Computed example of a mutant assay.
Amino acid sequence: MTTLPETIYAIQHLAFEDLGAWEDVLYSLGYRVRYFEAGIDDLTKALQYEGLTIILGGPIGVYESDDYPFLKQEIDLLKVRLEKNLPTLGICLGAQLIAHALGARVYAGHAKEIGWSKLDIQNMLKNPLSALTEIKVLHWHGDTFELPKSAELLASSEIYSNQAFRVGSNILALQFHAEVASDNLEKWLIGHTCELRNANIDIPTLRADNRKYATHLEQASSQVLKNFIDQLTIAHSISTP
């Protein structure tokens, strides 16, 4: 396994959208987790960190920096981070931020994609998402992105063709939620009630689907995280924070 500092940094944009089931996976691999709250904490340390930084989801858009000025600093720091090829994983908004920082267009999509469905996983060497083949994952987004020029497409869905990409071995962007924990989704249903009702999403069905599919996703997605960490290439010695 790649030698990383023992702390994984995670940037949150919404309190209940955390690392979910992946937090226990990281603990089992011997890592600890430190969270940074976007809009509250200075993200400089998290985005200049030479270990693994995970950028989590949230309901705002990358193009809303006039309303959420902290996004400007986050994007500027992320651009430098990606230029240095530092280990970075983005989920949902985190993936959109990575795409934007790499020069791709991020924009409001033609439809809300909220619910459980399978991905079309690209058949390629060392695709870190291979464990998700035939596994239903949780989608929860309205924005989408164009594929950055430097990126390799890893997965698509019926609604949006760009669901995941990587740049080399150190940068991974996931539009969908592979990290969601089976016992944590109720927080999402409460916190996103306005979005769900505006999109005419049936909440009892979403809850029932969580009971059907989330445990299978937890089992498969743990391998995705392990694959990504195993494939990281660290060019130089990194000190523990």
Rank of each mutant, 00 (worst) to 15 (best):
G191N: 11
C92D: 01
T193P: 00
P59T: 04
I114A: 08
Q12H: 10
L153D: 01
H192L: 09
Q163A: 04
G57V: 09
S182A: 15
L206Q: 10
K136A: 12
I201A: 08
Q73S: 14
S182R: 11
R166A: 12
S28K: 12
L185R: 10
Y68W: 11
A164K: 02
P69Y: 06
I11E: 05
G94E: 01
K187L: 12
A208P: 01
Q73H: 08
F16M: 11
A155P: 04
Q175H: 08
L78I: 03
L82T: 05
P128A: 09
N127M: 06
K118D: 05
T240D: 15
T215P: 00
I8C: 07
Q48N: 15
T144I: 12
L29Q: 13
A95N: 02
G57L: 10
D183Q: 12
S157W: 02
D41L: 05
T88M: 03
R105I: 05
D24H: 10
L56Q: 06
L185F: 15
D18C: 10
Q175A: 06
I98A: 03
E74P: 08
T240S: 14
L153V: 02
L189D: 03
S150E: 15
I60P: 01
L29S: 05
L154S: 05
G142R: 13
N198Y: 00
S161D: 12
A101M: 01
Q73G: 04
E23N: 10
D66G: 00
H236P: 00
L14F: 13
T2C: 09
F36R: 08
R166W: 00
Y213K: 08
A151S: 04
A15S: 15
V224R: 05
L14Y: 14
F165Q: 04
I171E: 02
E195F: 04
C194R: 13
E113Q: 15
T193I: 13
V25S: 13
T133G: 00
Y35A: 09
A173G: 04
S157M: 02
L47G: 09
N85M: 10
H236A: 13
S156V: 01
E37N: 13
V180A: 15
L138M: 15
P5F: 03
V224A: 08
T7Y: 02
L56W: 08
D143P: 03
D42N: 15
K136M: 06
F16W: 14
S182D: 09
L14Q: 13
Y160S: 10
V224Y: 06
A21N: 14
M124R: 14
D42I: 04
L4Q: 04
R211T: 06
K126F: 12
M1T: 07
N170V: 03
I201E: 06
G39T: 07
I190V: 14
L102D: 01
F176T: 07
E146V: 00
W116Q: 08
G142E: 10
L225P: 07
R81F: 03
L26H: 05
M1H: 07
R211K: 14
P204T: 07
A178L: 12
E179A: 01
E152R: 08
E23F: 01
A101H: 02
V25P: 04
G168V: 05
N170A: 06
A181P: 01
I171F: 02
I114D: 05
A220K: 12
K45L: 13
W188H: 10
L29E: 12
K45H: 12
T3N: 13
I121N: 11
S150K: 13
A199P: 02
E158I: 05
L232K: 11
A15H: 14
F165L: 04
L147P: 04
I159C: 06
T3S: 12
T3Y: 06
K84P: 00
